[in-house]
Amino acid sequence: MQNLAKYIVIITLLMCQACSKSSEAFLEKGRTFMQEGNFKEAVRYFNWAVEKDAQSYAAFNARGAAYFSLKDYDNALLDFNQSIKLNDKDYKAFMNRGNVRRETNDLKGALADYTQALPLNNNVPDLYLNRGVVNAQLQNYDAALKDFNEVIKRNKQNKNAYYNRGNILYTQKKFKEAIADFRTAVQLDARFAKALYALGMAELLADKKEDACMHLKQAANLNHPQADGKVIEYCK
């Protein structure tokens, strides 16, 4: 009976705490849990933030981000839709909804969201990067190259922009240019297994077998799933 009484007191205190805090306070606490990687607890606090203020587009966007991190894409999409409905001038919900659509293979929807987000804030390199990836998946290669070029123009340390641009150049059989981009990506991150593998494959096609085998072996040592097979096929 005493334990039950303590349990009731604890629950009551938690309920009182939820009643006393503002939506913004719950939002900030949820963001702290997001930074710690505790996404389920973040959702709980964002729920309270929404209950306190159902007009808070930031709370819906934050909860959508937590759901996205939990791979709960259906609920994430609902929250980003609501955030946009409440405020269609904030780029973040469009970008986040684009990420959901990309993960669920709605590539045209993702492309539309990234494109709509850019006029709202064109100083976010990841928007260009994400749109470039989707353009590449849709085989809009010229548009993808423009996006990756824009990322590199703004941030010459972005390894993913070089890697993705290199992939397009590789597809276009521009192996010399592709090799240059893959090399830059590897220089920026020596443990970038995908870039090492791509570099090795491009070097094979450019008749640079010695360099190719060195890079394929490095990719294999970093557990790239296809590298071992290529080493056996070309480097033994």
Rank of each mutant, 00 (worst) to 15 (best):
L4W: 09
V9N: 02
M15W: 09
Q17R: 02
K21V: 02
S23L: 09
E24M: 09
E24G: 03
E24I: 08
A25Q: 15
A25F: 04
L27A: 11
G37S: 02
K40Y: 12
E41L: 08
A42H: 05
F46P: 12
V50R: 00
K52L: 13
A54I: 08
N61C: 15
D72N: 14
D74L: 07
F80C: 00
D90Q: 03
K92Q: 09
K92P: 01
M95V: 06
N96Q: 10
E103Y: 05
D106T: 08
A110C: 04
L111W: 03
A112R: 07
A112Q: 10
T115M: 00
N121E: 14
N121Y: 14
P125F: 11
L127I: 15
L127F: 05
V134L: 01
N135W: 09
N135I: 10
N135V: 12
N140Q: 12
Y141L: 00
D142N: 13
K146M: 15
K146W: 13
D147E: 08
I152E: 09
R154K: 12
R154D: 03
K156P: 03
N158I: 00
A161F: 11
Y162C: 01
G166A: 12
N167Y: 05
I168P: 13
L169I: 07
Q172H: 12
E177D: 14
A180C: 12
V186R: 05
A190C: 04
R191S: 14
K194Y: 13
Y197H: 09
G200E: 07
E203N: 14
K208P: 05
H215M: 04
Q218D: 05
A220L: 12
P225R: 03
I232A: 13
E233D: 13
Y234L: 05
K236S: 10
